[in-house]
């Protein structure tokens, strides 16, 4: 190994707590179709979904647990799709024995990164569609 660190075993310098602020609050919905966007403690995916919904459907007030219409708010739904795809997987992981929580955390963070990338790559096209 050329690195001073054992790269393939992910030895990280420093204390983890100094580098990140784990959310630990990401909640996914079991149905994958509805999301409560008016919670006071929005998790990252819901916050993204809310912002995406407002981008794609300005002036549209999203009511609590309203079903998301794909044709109207496709951008928001695409983000939710990335999240809910992992959600079903995460639920399965919860039912497994150790290392349950860490696997779920990794799965959720991966989903969020994937969703952020998707949102960033497609946000301009959403803006241009709105005119």
């Amino acid at each position: 190994m050329t690195s001073p660190l054992q790269a393939d075993t992910f030895n990280i310098p420093g204390k983890p707590g100094e580098y990140f602020a784990p959310s630990g609050t990401v909640n996914f919905l079991t149905g994958g179709e509805q999301v409560d966007l008016h919670k006071s403690d929005l998790d990252p995916i819901s916050a993204l979904a809310l912002e995406a919904t407002e981008l794609a459907a300005p002036m549209h007030l999203v009511t609590q647990s309203e079903k998301l219409d794909g044709s109207r708010i496709e951008f928001g739904e695409a983000i939710l799709e990335a999240a809910t795809h992992i959600e079903s997987q995460a639920v399965t992981v919860v039912n497994e024995v150790a290392p349950v929580m860490d696997s779920v955390m990794i799965a959720k963070l991966s989903a969020i990164i994937f969703a952020l990338r998707y949102a960033q790559a497609h946000s301009d096209s959403v803006e241009s569609r709105r005119g």
Partner: peptide, 22 residues
């Protein structure tokens, strides 16, 4: 830890998001 650090840094530096709240 690597995944968390990646998320923390990428959220802030690439996507300008607060990693804790999105």
């Amino acid at each position: 830890v690597a995944v968390r650090m990646y998320y923390e840094q990428v959220a802030r530096r690439v996507y300008q998001r607060d990693p804790a709240t999105g």
